[in-house]
Design a binder for these strands. Structure first.
Length: 440
RNA sequence: GGAGAGGUGCCAGAGUGGUCGAAUGGGACUCACUGCUAAUGAGUUGACCUGGGAAACUGGGUCCGAGGGUUCAAAUCCCUCCCUCUCCGCCA
């Protein structure tokens, strides 16, 4: 949720910033109007309630003074006031509900630094990286031999490590099934990433299904309900990312300043319905209903946030570098920013087989938007004031697309796939995946 | 799933209809005493909403697991739900 006091004070600025991401002024104005009406109703309600409370106190007093007639008279007066109170309380409650409804679907104010743009095409490439030239402003050479121009679904079938047909048989399309070294590869990548982050990030294994309010806290509900899997009977929701449970860990809590920044990492499956993207990128591992991911998440003070944002990005990039994959960093424009985010950098890995840049991480700074929804605050100093924390997170990394890129990048002329050396210990010495019909 | 007990402030724990935002103890903070620490004494110490004020501060309201109900009045009575603990059953 945006800061509604900020809206009261600087409505023009709020409209300007939200306008950059395509929010109509009228929506913002409606929130301001309902907010104002709500506050009027609250004042009237509280004043009346004060009178009712006072009258009740005098009832007790009258009884103590042995004045039953006076007590009856006061009771009657209080009853009469109570009728009005009920009416105006209901009005206030209705206004509060409407205010919350609008408030919840208004996205976060984008950072002043986020590039202004309408959509994907306006995202800014911050840098490229490849193992040959390292970091660079210009795109690396994307020449690859023909034997690397094979899509990963063919490689996966050839090496018998990805079985999309069987996955589809069990659960439908976009639910992959990994076999043998394919399965071990996910395990290796997960262990590798968790180990890399273990110096500074507390490892968490959160629940995979969460309550509705947990989804609301991160901004995934109510607006994006169609994107999530729901267990209707228990009203539990399958997490689309570990961001969801991690961000709610400190829900309704007040943290101490010396606990911040609080850094956590978690490996979880992620579930996405991908409603509205039917038929797009559905082949292979490009877009899935279920995939595994290691997430980084931080609660910080506002002052620490920029540094944390940079650290998460650095760590996500670090993994890609150690895996030897070519990637680029995108600064998402205001039109492409996720609803809860103030600023986001996407990491896209180059997959030569499908000849595409694949998003494998999204590193976001949410300001206090999620913290306000989840009510996560901190005490600025012992005995000091209480403020909302800032939340940040990023994938490091989402494995399915990383695996696609690894298979395509690592493919050799003989059809085998060479794996990055950093994974060797996690694969008990395996350095390449051979065709099943070749010598072992 | 069945039976029972319970959920109160940072913690422990009283409170069974009005004077209870809530006793008491602990913790934390401030001051005094002390060469330092400890000990001692005094004081302070909740969150949220809304109004006034530049601010210090201050008026009103809400909150005793959550939501509903009874009543002039609810931490206290009633209903539903959630969670925790003990026992039984089942089970990876």
């Amino acid at each position: 949720m945006i800061d509604i006091r900020g809206l009261r004070e600087y409505p023009a600025l709020v409209k300007e910033l939200l306008g950059r991401r395509g929010v109509e002024d009228s929506v913002v104005e409606e929130l301001a109007e309902v907010d104002s009406a709500f506050r009027d109703a609250v004042s009237a309600r509280d004043e009346l309630r004060s009178r009712v409370n006072d009258t009740s106190r005098r009832v007790a007093e009258a009884y103590r003074n042995k004045e039953p007639v006076e007590a009856e008279r006061l009771k009657e007066e209080s009853r009469r006031l109570g009728v009005d109170l009920d009416r105006i309380t209901a009005e206030a409650a209705e206004l509060e509900k409407r205010r919350r409804e609008i408030w919840l679907v208004i996205p976060n104010l984008p950072s002043e630094e986020a590039p202004v743009g309408a959509g994907e095409a306006d995202n800014v490439v911050v840098r490229y990286w490849s193992s040959e030239v390292g970091s660079s402003d210009v795109a690396p050479n994307l020449e690859y031999p023909d034997f690397k121009r094979v899509p990963h679904w063919d490689i996966g079938a050839e090496l018998d490590i990805i079985d999309l047909e069987r996955g589809a048989k069990l659960s439908g399309s976009m639910f992959p099934l990994y076999k043998g070294l394919g399965s071990r590869l996910i395990r290796a990548l997960t262990s590798f990433a968790l180990d890399e982050h273990s110096d500074a990030f507390l490892e968490i294994r959160p629940p995979t299904f969460v309550k509705r309010e947990t989804m609301v806290s991160t901004g995934h509900l109510p607006k994006f309900a169609d994107d999530a899997y729901q267990m209707e009977r228990d009203d539990l929701w399958a997490i689309p990312t570990a961001e969801v449970p991690l961000t709610s860990m400190a829900r309704d809590e007040i943290l101490e300043a010396d606990q911040l920044p609080l850094k956590m990492t978690a490996a979880t499956p992620c579930f996405r319905r991908e409603a509205g993207s039917a038929g797009r990128d559905t082949r292979g591992l490009l877009r899935l209903h279920e995939f595994d991911k290691v997430e980084l998440m931080v609660y910080s003070t506002p002052a620490q946030a920029p540094e944390m944002h940079a650290e998460i990005l650095r760590r996500a990039e670090g993994l890609l570098r150690r895996l030897g994959l070519t990637y680029r960093v995108l600064d998402l424009c205001t039109g492409d920013l996720g609803a809860s985010s103030r600023r986001t950098f996407d990491l896209e890995v180059y997959a030569p087989g499908v000849d595409r840049w694949l998003e494998v991480s999204s590193v976001s700074w949410f300001g206090d938007y999620q913290a306000r929804r989840a009510n996560v605050r901190y005490r600025t100093e012992p005995g000091g004031s209480i403020e909302f924390v800032h939340t940040l997170n990023g994938s490091a990394l989402a494995w399915a697309r990383v695996i696609a890129a690894l298979l395509e990048t690592g493919r050799e002329a003989d059809g085998s796939v060479t794996l990055p050396a950093v994974l060797t210990p996690y694969l008990r010495g395996v350095t390449r995946i051979q065709r099943p019909d070749s010598e072992i």
